[in-house]
Amino acid sequence: MVETIHVKDRSVVVPGETLAEGMGVLPGFGTFRDGDKIVCSRLGLASVEDKVIKIVPMSGVYQPKLNDRIIARVSDILLSGWRLDTRCPYSAVLSTKDAVTDFIPRGANLAEYFGLNDWLVCKIVNVTSQMLVDVTLKGPGLLKLQGGRIVDVNAAKVPRIVGKDGSMMELIKGATGCDIHVGLNGRVWLKGSPQGEIIAIDAIRMIEAEAHLPGLTEKVNAWLQKHARR
């Protein structure tokens, strides 16, 4: 049977759009098979690789996944841990054994370690079928954030903000002198000079708005050269 692919690579596709026909083409993320057709189920960019068609989404809430590094806010203090707001429909729990190396006696005041509204960079270690999420603070690069400011971004665009092997982040850090942490849940923490922070936020907003366009790294680089070197 002849296979026909109706969409170009990196073209914008919408739910219900027929992407390809024929049993030789395989449905990837954001698509499903209906008879011999492959139909789109998410708004995003089509990605055609050999015989597989998948969708790179442009929007959507963050869905917790194992080993994701996220930035979370302490929203409550429990008997033996902390409840964290993860900027998704489900909260996460940080238990005392995953939080600190010290021995914490029963009945200790946990607010002495992490208080309400503290910001933590943590890693997801367990996600159940009912979306109960456990996180840890033990690991390289996991820490409690001090000062700085938090910017919320579209979680679907975080990979573009980070760039290939962190290239985009290095670019912004180098140009603005800010210390930046990016959580996969669409939260960015940054700390630097007031001017540097503003330029870094503008750059991040620009990447977020133009994440679907090619040649973004060069554009951001040129923009930073113009604005950050003044």
Binding site: P15, G16, S41, R42, G44, P57, S59, G60, A156
Partner: peptide, 11 residues
């Protein structure tokens, strides 16, 4: 709903 990134089989 499509703009919100929700999975839909049709529009």
């Amino acid at each position: 709903l499509a703009d919100a990134g929700i999975e839909m089989k049709d529009l």
